[in-house]
Amino acid sequence: MFHHIGEILILFWRTLEKLPVAWRQRRKVIDQLFEIGNASLLMVCLLSLFIGGVLALQTGPVLVQRGISSVLGGMIGLSVCKELAPVMMAILIAGRIGSAMSAEIGTMQVYEEIDALKTMDIDPVEYLVLPRMIAIAVALPTLVVFSIPVGWFGGALVCDFNQKIGVSFWSYFENLREVVELSDVANGLFKSFIFALIIGIVSCHQGLVTRGGPRGIGRSVTKAVVNSIVLILILDYFLTRFLLYVQK
């Protein structure tokens, strides 16, 4: 495990070193951005709508019972922007895009395409990893920007239309506006940026270390997704601790 962590850190460092020549890879970055953004936006919006909705559905009746339904907007607002949107979108992107990245690079590894690049003095880190890292680091926070308001809206819909809750749109968003600050949204975007780097580097690393044909590719894809999700959830705790400490 430590061997893999070391390899991932080295790969991350080598990718950072290539940042000054990122402009040369702009076409690939745009292609990847389109791949990630276009392929995931509808799914992100749909998922966010239901995340906000289910949060309202679970907590609304309990808060109504205790007579504190007026805080629903703020509670859902904070939960969505600081926690649920960045984490759930990161998990979605790990599944959709991380798997595709590791499968594509893994296939290139198994079928000697990466060796072919090396014999042409083309650095696989610059050619394959860098564009994907930049694209995912831009795309995931952008998707979270869409996810947050849609999640809020999903919560508002349930609060307004569910008879057991009965909190109006107006009072829901009034409370949300009082409680949620711009820094909370920035907090969520920062987390999603870090998660994007994790998904990108873990998936690319898994692709590059793929061995052994189609079965190896399958194993790499599984590892890329599982390891990304595990790291996201563990790091989420420490990032939250760090951000709470910074906000004090």
Binding site: Y111, E112, E113, D115, A116, T119
Partner: peptide, 13 residues
Amino acid sequence: RAMVFQSAALLTS
């Protein structure tokens, strides 16, 4: 240097 691989190793993308 140049190498021609057994599988040709053309980039399929």
